[in-house]
Amino acid sequence: MTTPEPQVTAERELCGLVNELSRQISEHVRERAAKLELTAAQATALREMTGPMTLSELAERMSCEPSNATYVIDRLQKQGLIERRPHPTDRRAKQLVLTAEGIALRERLIELLVEESPLAGLTREQQNVLHELLDQAVTQR
């Protein structure tokens, strides 16, 4: 049995919109990161550092392999923005923690990311609905 053409067209158009939004968000992050002399990956890591976490947790939030996150964290550590500390409950693990300079830069980055965001044209309610729908689509698998 074949899938009806209108369903195929709707799926294709929806995928195109999601891809375009992803492209716009990526470009927005790159542009804002450059203003702070960061790479997009560094900006993503800082954005995702909402508190102390392990490298594995950060890599998952960044949607990348831990080896890629390690490279990014090494550079942020050299810049004095992040520290590796002993994990409080797992002596084999390290915990990533923003320094005071890292916290200040993250706050500035968040301000820049909110400015003219590709999602800024949506109301808070619309953003919540979009979030729910995307979450549902992603977790459905």
Rank of each mutant, 00 (worst) to 15 (best):
E13G: 00
E20D: 11
P88R: 11
V8L: 14
N128K: 12
D74W: 13
N19S: 10
E31A: 09
T3V: 15
E107Q: 11
L21W: 02
P86D: 12
L113P: 05
A100K: 13
I25M: 01
T123K: 04
Y71F: 09
K78H: 13
T3F: 11
R92E: 12
M53K: 07
A59F: 04
G80Y: 13
Q95C: 05
L112Q: 06
L81Q: 11
D90S: 08
D74N: 15
P118M: 00
M49G: 04
M62S: 05
Q127V: 10
R91C: 03
E132M: 14
Q95D: 13
E65A: 15
I103H: 10
L55F: 03
L134C: 09
Q24T: 01
E57K: 02
M49Q: 10
R23M: 00
P4G: 12
L122M: 08
R108K: 13
S117P: 01
L112M: 01
E20R: 02
Q24A: 03
R106W: 01
D74S: 14
E5V: 15
P88E: 13
D135N: 11
T99S: 06
A59W: 02
P86R: 14
R85L: 12
Q127Y: 06
L113S: 05
T50Q: 12
V18Q: 00
N68Q: 13
N128T: 09
L130G: 06
L98I: 04
L98Q: 07
A10Y: 10
S67A: 15
A120S: 14
